[in-house]
Simulated assay, not measured.
Amino acid sequence: MATTNAKRRVRDNPRAATAILSVLGYVLVLGTFAGLLPIYPDLGRETVDLLSHAIAGVNTIALTALLLGWRWIRRGEVRKHRAAMLTAFALILVFLVLYLVKVGGGGEKSIAVTGPVYYAYLAMLAIHIVLSVVAVPVVLYAVVLGLTHTPTELRDTAHARVGRWAAGAWALSLALGIVTYLMLNHIYGVDEYMAALLPVLAVRR
């Protein structure tokens, strides 16, 4: 009964539910970045690398699910669309946990390159971050509507319109996140340990 009543309240007030969930998410992320949540273990370099690879893998699968969901809804395959989008959303929650553990544990890296590539990296990273922040309430609103309404009822809501914006911003953010991961971890990346050694190595050379 309590679950039914809660679902009914969310159904009747999707914007309020979205606002509450968005604020909770923002507080959790900002609190982690500010070091206000001492709940994360200190991480070693190997663990940071492992988390980075895991995050990229989760995001790649999430992007694939998202694109499949977009394709299926265009074909009118509602059940497949719903399954794909919920899978993508679940994976984003997994990403959030892994990312917060990484950031909260002090797992930071820097890119070892200058010039146009460096600025291109910063531009992509900035767009990725902005889209990630902006997409939170949009994605949550689409998900809340999808979970509390039947396919027929959704036709009378903003789900389709909001969903298009949510999927577009979400997909671009994920794609840019994957590209910046490749640049940082496999092409130009340098972790903090190596960054500290670079001046020493330069002097020795």
Rank of each mutant, 00 (worst) to 15 (best):
T114Y: 05
D156Q: 12
K7Y: 07
A56V: 12
V27F: 11
I187G: 06
R9I: 04
R161Y: 04
A17S: 06
F33R: 13
L140N: 00
V113K: 09
A175K: 03
L147W: 06
A19W: 03
K102Q: 14
N13W: 00
T157M: 01
F33Q: 11
G163S: 08
A56Q: 03
L66V: 03
R82K: 15
L37Y: 10
W72A: 03
R71V: 01
A126M: 14
R161M: 07
L50K: 12
F95G: 00
W165L: 14
D49P: 04
V113I: 15
D42S: 11
A158E: 11
D191P: 12
R164F: 12
T87S: 14
K80F: 00
H186E: 05
A17D: 00
A126C: 12
P41L: 10
L131T: 02
A195C: 03
L154A: 13
V200D: 10
T47R: 15
I178E: 00
S110H: 07
E192V: 10
R15Q: 05
V130H: 06
R204E: 12
L37N: 10
Y99C: 03
P199Y: 10
R9T: 06
H53V: 15
P41G: 10
L36V: 05
T148L: 11
T4P: 00
I127K: 04
V162N: 06
G107Q: 05
L140W: 02
T18L: 06
L96N: 09
I111Y: 01
K80Y: 00
M85D: 01
L125T: 08
T150V: 01
L98W: 08
A126I: 13
G104S: 08
Y26T: 08
I111L: 13
V117L: 10
T152L: 13
L184E: 03
A160D: 05
I92W: 14
L43A: 07
